[in-house]
Design a protein around this nucleic acid. Structure first.
Lengths: 220, 220, 220, 220
DNA sequence: CATGAATGAGGCTTCATTCAT
DNA sequence: AATGAATGAAGCCTCATTCAT
């Protein structure tokens, strides 16, 4: 138990490496089934069947069914939240790589959009199960509190000073921006994935909506 | 099965009337427990215990556990979505009761905010369980499609013509507005209910954010 | 959890009363099977089958399989150890109902012999499972320490003063007497129950052996 | 399967010889764990872990888990019961090496005491598991019937004739003596090993108790 | 209407044993 | 000989649902 959550998160990002073939079959099957039907409607025997392994094999790799869920969802939290902030927000904002908040926001949304696009089922699971599993909530809070929030706070402060963002607290800005982005992705990937989307257009619209919504209110 | 969904919805809105004492105890207990722990983590025996009735009594009133869930959630859908639109949007917008889109939006958000405030647990259930129960999804789509969407579409058209809203499709407007409002409520009532909220201020900020986000872009 | 072990023991002695028919079928079947094959070789499904009930019914009455074991064994401990001491040792020894230690010992052995005779399977379980279940050990120690030991200690002191017993510590006397008695019963009821026993003779022999073994060593 | 039990017993007594290092690690680990927690509470994976070998390695040396148990317990039976009788009882009693039954009994108890002292865990296993494993019972009966009983019978007859032992059947004498000795050892090594024992004193007391218990009843 | 004992299908998990490497 | 991943039978337990009272 000396292992910290932080260690775990790091370990997780390289997970793919040391997984046996059967293990990744299990994870893949679990992701498909749980995304589709939810954690409590998916039995371990069903996962085993779809993965083409014996039920006992699941428990050789994951002590409990919940451990399997956590093993699926934790990297998603780490990867969805962290990378962009670690690399882009913190570094490039200082580098002034982004001329304006708009540039940053656009890069951010596009980057997360692309990540989501490649990870729809896992993110679906994350969204659906977050409410029911304290273990996941803890990880989420940890990641959000140490990585996402500070980076956002930092960036907001910077652009507020530059006058590009209205004078709203970070909490409020997050409460505006995040649901807008997630709302778009839910619509795009979960509610109406089959629709004939013009992703470029919608990304622009989303950026625009947020930008106008939070910008300094100069024209009123 | 001649009964249509529509009939059901109507019946539901007057439900309170014909419920026996035991029955409302059951519903109340179920709401508390399911909101707190989720549908699959709440057993009928637990509901019976908290309600102070025998387990069999639940099944005298609801054929299955899922029926009980549906009986809880369906009126929430009907009531959360419908009333305002039926009464205010449709009628008063025509009456020109609302001078501006801002007035309408503000009235709408405040109205829904107050409704949410009095129905936190049920709405929590709705939000959490919607993903897992096709029965609920069907009801939701039906209500949304026949009541909410048309009313919104109507209003948006009206105010777009008046130049108060930018020229965005109804779908897009909904995708912008709804997550913003729901996101606020989740923060307010579910994630941080204990915070020292200045509700008036936050309502204003929410309206402002939406308004700027979707208004005609005159000042750029 | 306010309930003390003592309360439990009392409750247990009247247990028979409030057991439903199915419940006593379960207990009876469990006793038979566990006595014969041991706790870990007896499955709950087997118990259910022999009891003529559904497997789930067991768990309506006993939360876990181990609870069932404890429910079987605890009264045996209470009843095997306690009654004689409470009633006879303590009271009658003072009354001088027993002229000599021999009388007391004989009455005691005969009394416990008869009890054992009517409870062979349960006592077999107690003997076999005591080593593996801390829950049972705890009960045993409690009963022994508060009831059996004090009564024996009392009686030994009394008869030592009368010169009928040699000057050995209570611990040692118990270590001599108890295995002799239990050893006899194991032979009689468990190892060779089918033998053609002359119980009166063997009881006498057992008393004699103990008596000579611990008496004041006058003739050497 | 031409191999008789007798062959096996002989083979067993030289077992140490042909055991590989891993094999004795396995046996040692198994003894520790099974003594502590019982056969059914000890998994082969746990034994393998403690032994520092792979789980499969156990099954290379012992076809089944039960075979491992038998391999542990059979030599204990052979060694606990047999040697003294074979060497001492039979030979030395005839040699009249022991002047009196007391001398023999004392030598016997001391000898078995010392053996027990060096083999507590294995004897614990024997005692605890004997009831549940017919394979062990068979071995036990075989050894007892062919080695212990005849030797004892022989010695008893001899000393009865010399008038040192009362006229009791061998069965009865065994039923008196054996539980007394085993009872002492259980107390000494299993129930209260940590106590500050004066072993010499207790050995003497045990001998004394048995001796008086079974001697010719001359002084009554 | 209400009760609650009884049901039995199905879920998660353990573990002795096998086998390809 | 040794390994350890994989197996799958079997175990304990949960829980929605039924039904006699």
């Amino acid at each position: 138990m000396a292992e910290t959550l932080d260690d775990k998160l790091k370990a997780i990002q390289q997970e793919g490496n040391h997984m046996t073939k059967k293990q990744s079959q299990i994870v893949e099957a679990a992701i498909e089934l749980i995304a589709e039907k939810g954690y409590y409607n998916t039995s371990t025997s069903e996962i085993a069947r779809r993965a083409g392994v014996a039920e006992g094999t699941i428990f050789r790799h994951y002590e409990t069914k919940k451990d399997l869920l956590v093993a699926i969802v934790t990297p998603a939290i780490a990867n969805f939240s962290a990378p962009f902030f670690a690399e882009k927000f913190v570094k490039e904002v200082f580098d002034e790589s982004y001329q304006s908040f708009e540039d940053l926001l656009y890069a951010f949304i596009r980057n997360r959009f692309e990540f989501a696009q490649s990870n729809v089922p896992i993110l679906k699971i994350l969204l659906q199960e977050l409410a029911f599993h304290p273990e996941i909530q803890t990880t989420y809070k940890q990641v959000f509190g140490t990585t996402v929030y500070p980076a956002m706070d930092h960036a907001f402060t910077y652009y507020k000073e530059k006058g590009e963002i209205g004078d709203l607290p970070t909490d409020v800005l997050i409460r505006m921006i995040v649901p807008t982005i997630i709302g778009f992705m839910i619509d795009r990937f979960m509610l109406n994935p089959q629709k004939d989307w013009d992703d470029e257009l919608e990304l622009r619209r989303t950026v625009e909506y947020i930008l106008q919504g939070i910008r300094k209110n100069e024209c009123q």
